[in-house]
Amino acid sequence: MNPRALAVWSLSGVTIALSTGSPVYRTLVLLCALNVLIAFRRPGVSVRGLLIALVAAAAIALATTTLASHTGDHAFLVLPAGIPVIGGPLTLEASLFGLSTGVGIAAAVLAAAPLSLVLQPHALVDALPGALARTGAAIGTALNLIPGIARSATEIRDAQRMRGWRSRRVREWPDLAVPVVLTALEGSITLAEAMEARGYGSGVRTHYSEQVWRRQDVLVALVSAAAACAFIGLRVTGAITDWYPFPELMWPGVSVAGVLCCCALATPLLVWRR
């Protein structure tokens, strides 16, 4: 897949997820994004941690809204009014609003996630416009340092443990943190030296892997961008209505055009080879 096409798809997904309050459209974006992520993630990349974090974020949104907003006619529990902030009726409206917010957050994050979990970091960096090529190479190199820092942290921890260092004592944590930071800095300087020695910054950069636009890539980019534009247009013209459970709880409105715009985000699943 072309990284720029995937970037267009991600941007479109995030745009739709953030431009609507309707849990229906948000859920559709979430499902499309989750499927794309699982289908195209890099080999060996786990999405479990991300999903746990998103469930936690959605749960926090649900709990916060439920406990702090006491608006709505459908109370399912009343906490004593004397309890600061959360005291008062807990309403179904507030819970549904919190849940919808959580789904929106998850949908937006999942739409952006393929940029880091599907693409190699350098592929995304290479996709930057020519004017940002040097900055991009620097970012890519910095990203490449991260696994090395993790390895060095393990190595340092082991070496210090063998000299009697114990992680239980907070005052001894600097014995681990200081060498990790210094080693990372030193590694960065050595890498910068190596980059300079290989001509980094000497002029206009070219790319080893040319980013070829295949028909499938063009299709994904065009359909995704068109879907996002159409969705925004429908929102502006009022053809797609927003959903707000206050003051009266009602079912969210569903527009066929809006559903089609969201489902268009599934295009990668249909045209890109897994």
């Binding site: 350098h122 190479a137 980059m195 290989r198 001509g199 980094y200 910054g201 000497s202 002029g203 206009v204 950069r205 070219t206 790319h207 080893y208 892997s209 040319e210």
Partner: peptide, 14 residues
Amino acid sequence: RDVAFGLENIGTPA
């Protein structure tokens, strides 16, 4: 990609 890094820097055609 790593071997190509220097060549990219000096603008060598792909």
